[in-house]
Each structure stands twice: as structure tokens, then as C-alpha cells.
Design a protein around this nucleic acid. Structure first.
Lengths: 221, 221
DNA sequence: GCTTGTTTCTGTACGTGTAAGAAAAATAGC
DNA sequence: GCTATTTTTCTTACACGTACAGAAACAAGC
């Protein structure tokens, strides 16, 4: 009677804080005061512990943010009705992921995770892979296709987000502008001709166009 | 005589260190001891100054690395003979940029610059834009096309590089593996079926396939 | 001379994160 | 029952990047 259901206390020093404490408090700080206010020291103080103790429950701040993202995605990433046409389903699922991530300000540092493996996002990944398969790709090529879409999506968000942040912070004109200012039209005619419109073109949101092109290309091969 | 050519000393406290000092010393440290050894504190000590003094000549460490990258690119990014066919020229130019960046270990942190605006790289950008235009795109669409290629390329390098670094550092199995271990085949049949092959497929290098697909798609539209 | 303005540099403090080891419990041997 | 061992958790010390607030060093104007 006692041997199977005994709680069997764990050995070792008992924990004073739990991962749930950490995530919960972190979420509260982020929602109440914004992501910039979330520091490991602040979090530790709030919990009543020391900064380094947190690192026993969470590998680093990035993992903490990833867990917060998971939490966030679970509540905001609802499964929309997807189109029947498989190609369009791929596009819509990718856009759904993209938009949630692009709207979430603190993720930038997390995006380099080598997949978007939030449990909440898996369903979208499934839709993408499935759509590609239904369009005639082998399962292997479908997975590779999904990865290409992920590279493109992560790159777009990362590049745009950091560019925007720099534009907001910087007093100096961008390094690029100075480079573009004195282009040699003899050597780089295309760039020279577009130089004054480059910034404006760069700001335009062409995620969807690029995504469509990528999906078209993946299915054409 | 004296009013036009007078050196006209600059006002303000004279600088004791120059940007060139900084970049030169940084390059020496990186080539002699590797990029990890390059810290702002170390660099300052080597130059005979204080860490914060560096920040008057360089915005942050990222800009310093970008300048080093520029320097590096100028010497290693030689202009290859490109194919005549414009579409292939786009692909080859993109691959050239990609390969140099992927081989350069310290760039990962710099890649989120919203363009690859090393002077040395501009020629490749020109080739890509030009190739796209010659394939029939308008100059505007060509610039957007180049950007899509850049998103895809930067995303690929970033995601793969950080994934590789994590694999090297980590003792724990990836978070993803744990997620994939218990997938519900009823809900996510495609993923469940590929679960045990996912890691292996993810490691494969499919940059070129994805790039070709993207270029094809950009030109088909 | 002294003041003003401009530029450069320093000092301090706060952010993340690594490494080494102390502290607190369960367990094993006596 | 009492120590020794082992396992897990937490602490201390330190290295890193960098924001911020002056101080320091010069030219020009009074």
C-alpha cells in the first residue's frame, strides 16, 4: 500500500521558487509595465530570490521569453478557417504566424530559435506541410519547403524589427544612406538610379508578395 | 592666402584615439586570438584608453563588427565571373554573398542590419537587381525581390547559426525534441508521421533549393 | 585673464551570464 | 542515532556590454 503511491520525496535541496512562479511573475511584469522592464534582477527581487537562482529554472532570458511567447500564443493564436485550396492554405497559415509574431514586440530576440516550436504554433506548421503535400510535394520536400518559409518569415521580422528599432533610436542617418550618397553610376548603375528611392522601397511591406513568390516557386519545381 | 587653406584646428578636446586605431587593433585581436576574445574592455586596454571612450568613435560593438566585416569582405569577396543568363546570375550572386557570410563566424550578431550594406557587397546587390530587371521585372519589383532574397538569406544564416551554436553548447536535448516526442497523430498527422525524421531533415542544407524556388516565384509573377 | 561652447574622455552603475562552490535536503553505511 | 555521500538548489565573485552624468581639454570671444 505504501510502496506504489508514496509521494517519495525528491532528494536534494528543496526548491524555494518554481518555474511557474518565474513565468507567472514575468508575465505580470511584462503585461503591467512592458517588456523593457523585465530584467532578471527585477524578476528575482519580485520573487524574493537572487538573480542567479533563476538560471537554475530557466536556461537564459531567451528561454524565459520563449516560454512567455508560448503562453501568449496559446491565448491569441486561434485557429482560423483556412481556405480549401491547399496552396492558399499554406499562404494563409504562414501569414497568420507572421502577423502574430510581428505584432509581439519582445520576440525579436527569440526568433532565431531554429523552429517555431511553440505548441500553439504546431497546428499552423501542420497546415503548411499538409498543404504542400497536397499540392504534390513529397513529405521530405514539404518539410524543406516549410523551413524555407520559416527562414523567409523569421528573416523578414528580424530584419524589419531591428531596422525599425534603430530608426527610432538613432540620431545619426543610417550608414546605408551615406553609402548610397556617393555611388558610382558607372559601376553600379541600377543601384545609383534607385538610390534616392531605396529607403522608401525598403520600408514598404512586401512580406506577402515574397511569400507568394516563394510558395509558387516551391510548388513549380 | 591664410584664409582658404588654413588647417583651421577643430574646436573641442583633441582626440587621443581614432576610429582607425580601434578598427585596426580590433582586427588584430580577432585574427590573432579569435572573435570571442574581442571585448570592448580588452580593446580599450590594448589601445590605452577606457571602454567608454570607444563608444565615442563607434556606436556599439555591432557597428564595430560591421566595420570589421566590411574590411573582411573587401579582401575575400572577389567578383566572380557570373553567368550570362540573368536568372542564373541572380542565384549565383546570392549564393556568393550567402557563402561568405555563412563562413564568417562572428557575423551572426550583425546580420540583422536591414541591408547588407558593406561597400564590397554592393556589387553583388547590383548584380541581383540587374538580373531581376533583365528578366522583366520593373526596377521597383526588382528591389523588392532583392529584399525578399535578403530576408531569406539572412534568416537562413541566423537560424542555422544559432541552432548550431545551441547544439554545440547544450547538454539538454532540444526543446523541439520533447515537443515532437508526444504529438497527437489524430490532430497533427503530417508532423506525427515525420516526427522522427524532422531533426535529420532540418539539418540538411537546402539553401540553394529554397533560393531557386524564391527566384523562380519572383520571376513567374 | 575668464567665460562659453564643443568635443572627448572617465566613473559609476545596471544589465546579462559563467564558473565555482556553499547550503540544504534524502539516502547509505555504520 | 550519527556521520558520510549524493543530489539538487542557491550564492558569491566576476566578466562582459553599455546608458548616463559629468569632468577635462581645447578654441574663440570677451
Amino acid at each position: 500500500m505504501s510502496h506504489s503511491s508514496a509521494p517519495r520525496k525528491a532528494p536534494g535541496r528543496p526548491a524555494r521558487i518554481s518555474r511557474e512562479d518565474i513565468i507567472g511573475t514575468a508575465r505580470r511584469i511584462v503585461t503591467e509595465e512592458g517588456a523593457d522592464r523585465l530584467t532578471m534582477r527585477r524578476l528575482a527581487k519580485e520573487i524574493g530570490s537572487t538573480p542567479m537562482a533563476l538560471y537554475h529554472h530557466v536556461r537564459d532570458k531567451e528561454e524565459l521569453l520563449l516560454l512567455l511567447l508560448d503562453d501568449y500564443a496559446e491565448r491569441t493564436l486561434h485557429r482560423p478557417a483556412l481556405p480549401d485550396q491547399p496552396r492558399e492554405r499554406v499562404v494563409v497559415a504562414a501569414v497568420a504566424i507572421h502577423d502574430v509574431l510581428a505584432a509581439c514586440p519582445w520576440i525579436v530576440e527569440v526568433l532565431t530559435a531554429d523552429d517555431l516550436m511553440s505548441t500553439a504554433a504546431l497546428w499552423f506548421v501542420e497546415q503548411i506541410v499538409d498543404g504542400l503535400v497536397e499540392c504534390g510535394l513529397t513529405p521530405e520536400r514539404a518539410v524543406h519547403g516549410y523551413r524555407a518559409i520559416w527562414y523567409y518569415t523569421a528573416g523578414e521580422i528580424l530584419v524589419r524589427a531591428t531596422a525599425a528599432r534603430r530608426r527610432a533610436t538613432d540620431d545619426q542617418p543610417a550608414y546605408r544612406d551615406r553609402v548610397f550618397a556617393d555611388l558610382d553610376p558607372g559601376e553600379l548603375p541600377r543601384l545609383a538610379r534607385m538610390a534616392d528611392r531605396w529607403a522608401e522601397l525598403t520600408v514598404e511591406d512586401t512580406y506577402l508578395d515574397g511569400l507568394r513568390a516563394l510558395v509558387d516557386g516551391l510548388l513549380a519545381g
